[in-house]
Structures are given as structure tokens and as C-alpha cells.
Design a protein around this nucleic acid. Sequence first.
DNA 1: CGTATACGCTACGTTCGAGTCCTATAACTT
DNA 2: AAGTTATAGGACTCGAACGTAGCGTATACG
Lengths: 185, 185
Amino acid sequence: MDPRIERTRQAVRHATLAVLGQRGYASFTVEAVAEAARVAKSTIYRHWPTKLELIADALETLNEQPSPQVVAGSARDRIEQLLEHLSAAFADSVLSACIPALIEAAEHQPEVAEFLHGYNARRRQSLVDVLQTGIDSGEFPCHLDAGLAALALIGPVIYCRTMTPDPLPVARAGQLATQVLGPAK
Amino acid sequence: MDPRIERTRQAVRHATLAVLGQRGYASFTVEAVAEAARVAKSTIYRHWPTKLELIADALETLNEQPSPQVVAGSARDRIEQLLEHLSAAFADSVLSACIPALIEAAEHQPEVAEFLHGYNARRRQSLVDVLQTGIDSGEFPCHLDAGLAALALIGPVIYCRTMTPDPLPVARAGQLATQVLGPAK
DNA sequence: CGTATACGCTACGTTCGAGTCCTATAACTT
DNA sequence: AAGTTATAGGACTCGAACGTAGCGTATACG
């Protein structure tokens, strides 16, 4: 198999997300991707039939989830680590720069919606799992609903990223756990 | 003053938000607004010099905030009413349909960002005020931070609207208060 | 009733980007 | 080394939408 192919594809995929983050969905152009990837526009069309399929493929392919496998510590410690990692990830990282563009695109492109919702569901699930563990073991108040609590923890991160000028400070992410889970014993 | 002017302007403003909600920021066009407002394209340009100023003006002008003045009841009751009203408003309403478009636009257009952030800050403030009242009076746990708690309450509403297929059910908005504020006494 | 002016309509010129096609060149394969 | 194939770099067509301009009509105002 010609190694040029996969090399080119990866370069274009990365450039796709970079352009999506920098210019937004509204002014995302294949020409900008070509320039960023240092590739000819015709090359891009040789690999992807249309702009949307390019975006969808880039998202699926580059969706490595580098969430640290946090196993040690109490449930509360693990929650705080997950949250801080999450809020840090939403402060920068290529994919997070695309969040606003993806939200907008998801409204009208089913392929993008499927990716975005699936991606977030997976991220949320890791929180839910730890929360449920803590509830079952009695570490957290029994009135907690794992699904709702996960929303209360992760929601503010997205809220601050999209609805306020600045993302949620990592330090405040830790305090957030105290709000929702009650003070540490 | 010629009544035709204001009549036309209002029609165009409403159409602007409608189009923004339906088609998104990426494929928002003046021509679509003209059609929706049943107005000639040249008429729009007679009133607003550019597309962006049209959007900004429509947002500022139509930013009536019909949040019910909830005064009665305990702090907890008022919180729940505010939350349910909020989640209901985010389920439909012209402005909420524009949320994804606004998030995207705010990334690159300072005018839109200013509106969006200000709008949300005001909505959040009403929650903060009631929360602070409840904390001061001892109705809510003293470990609560009003600002963070407001984020934990409002964040999930936006999160569900943007990151999941369905908005937060109004019923779950009520449960959310229990999660964050602790069980009712 | 006469005048002013806001509007509708249509036709523009222009820009920009999608997607196609062709040729020369560079890189890989056997 | 020779043949194969992916790519670069253009030039190109096409359509969409921006924003402008001119003219006829209708509506408001005095």
C-alpha cells in the first residue's frame, strides 16, 4: 500500500479540525484546509467526495480519547480528577476549539450530530460510572441520581465555554464537586 | 414619523431571528430574511448597512426577557420555578432556536459575543440572587457558593440543549434542584 | 389633493468557494 | 531501472449570495 495515501489523509484530517476551530463552521472552506495541510485542493477531493464527509471522517478518525485512566483514590478524588481533566481539555486542545462549530453544525447535519452526541455521551458515562460507585458505597449522599449529578458537574464546563467569555477555571471545577457532592467528610 | 419604517423594521427583525434559528449562522442569508419578512432585499439594505449589523440589532431589540417575576414562595420554590421556566424556554422559543448559531457566531463576531454573554449573565444573575437569599437565610446548606450553584443549575440546561439529542425535560429540571440544594426538609 | 418618500421589483457587477479536469512531476513498487 | 500512481498546480465552470442602482408604485403626510 502506497504510504503517501495515509500520510496525506492524516495531514488533511488534522488540518480540517484546525481550520474548523480557527474559522468556524460558517467560513470553513476546503481551500483553507488545503493550504493548512500544504496539499492541493484536488488532492482532497480525490479522497473525500464532499466537504461534509471530510469533516465527519476527520472527527471520527481523530477522536482519540486521552482521558486518563483514573483508578486510584476515593470516588470523590476520581471525580475531581475527571472534572479537572475535563475543564482543562475544554480550555484548549484542537477538538475543543471546534466545539462551537460542531454545535452549530450538529443542528443541521445528522452526521455531525451523531458524532457530537456520541462523543459527549461517552465522556459523560465515565463520570456516571464513578458517581454510581460512590453512591452505592455510601460515600455520596443517597439522594443523588448519578445521571443528574453528572449533568450538574459537566454542564457548567460547557456552559462557561459557550456562554461566557472565559472557560471554567480548573480550580473552580474542583469546588464544583463540593457543591454537588456535599462537603468532604 | 412614517409608520411604515418601524413596521418594516420589526418584521425584518423577527424574520432575522427566525431564519437564524431555522438555517443556522452558516447558511443565514439576507435573501432568506427578505423572503421570510415578505420584504424586498433592497429594503433591508436600506435600513441596515450589513448583515452583521442586522443580526446584532435584531438581537438587541427583540431581547425582551419575559422571565416571570417570581416573588412568592420559599427560596427553593423560586429556584425551581426559575429553572423550570428556563428549561421550558430552552425547549422552544424563537431565541433559543438561535442558541447554536449564536454560540458559533460569538466565537468570531465580537458584537454577537457581547450580546450572548451579557444575555446569559443577566439570566444567571437572577438565579444567583435567589440562591444567595436562601444561603443567607439558612434555607440552603452554608457550604454553597451562589455563583457555582447557579452554574450547576443552569449548565445542564445548556449542555442538554447543545450536546445531546434532546433538551433537558422540564421535570428533570426540578429534580436538579434537589441534587444541588440537597433534599427538601 | 399634491408632494414626498418608503417600498417592491428587477437587473446588475462582484466576490468567493464548490467541485472538475488536465498535465507535468515526484514518489513508491517490483 | 522501468513502470505505476499519487500529488501539485493550474485553469476552469458553475452557482450562490453580497451589496448596488434605477424605476415604477403605493402609502403616508400637510
